[in-house]
């Protein structure tokens, strides 16, 4: 057993768990959390793909991609959270509309 195997499967599992959460979670905030889990799962897959048996250096390109992915995800998360806050404000302030 090698780390790529272990963490690859871990990543897939995390992705799937995130997927279940994203599909089922009733709570808005928790859905964001779940989506974030998905993204970590996807990151795992790329990092695992980059991994080479130790003496060899890993492939740097996927690392760059994952970093990009993380930044993209934080942006999306920020927007989603802003929407949640705004919606919550609107819902709490008036009930018509």
């Amino acid at each position: 057993m090698t780390p790529d195997l272990i963490y690859g499967l871990t990543g897939i599992a995390v992705f799937a768990i995130g997927l279940v959460g994203a599909l089922c979670a009733q709570d808005r905030l928790r859905r964001v959390l779940a989506l974030k889990l998905c993204s970590v799962g996807a990151g795992f897959l790329l990092v695992v793909g980059a991994w080479r048996t130790p003496p060899m250096a890993p492939d740097p390109v996927p690392h760059a991609l994952v970093i990009t992915g993380i930044v993209v995800m934080v942006s999306a998360t920020a927007v989603a959270l802003a929407l949640i806050r705004r919606l919550q404000t609107l819902e709490s302030s008036d009930d018509d509309d």
Partner: peptide
Amino acid sequence: AWVRLSAPDVALAEAAIGTGVTGALLLKT
């Protein structure tokens, strides 16, 4: 885990942004 997979840059980014900033955003929300 990503450090274990020889990806320290990714690990740093994840810790700082993916976890740190995101966590702060979540808590703020």
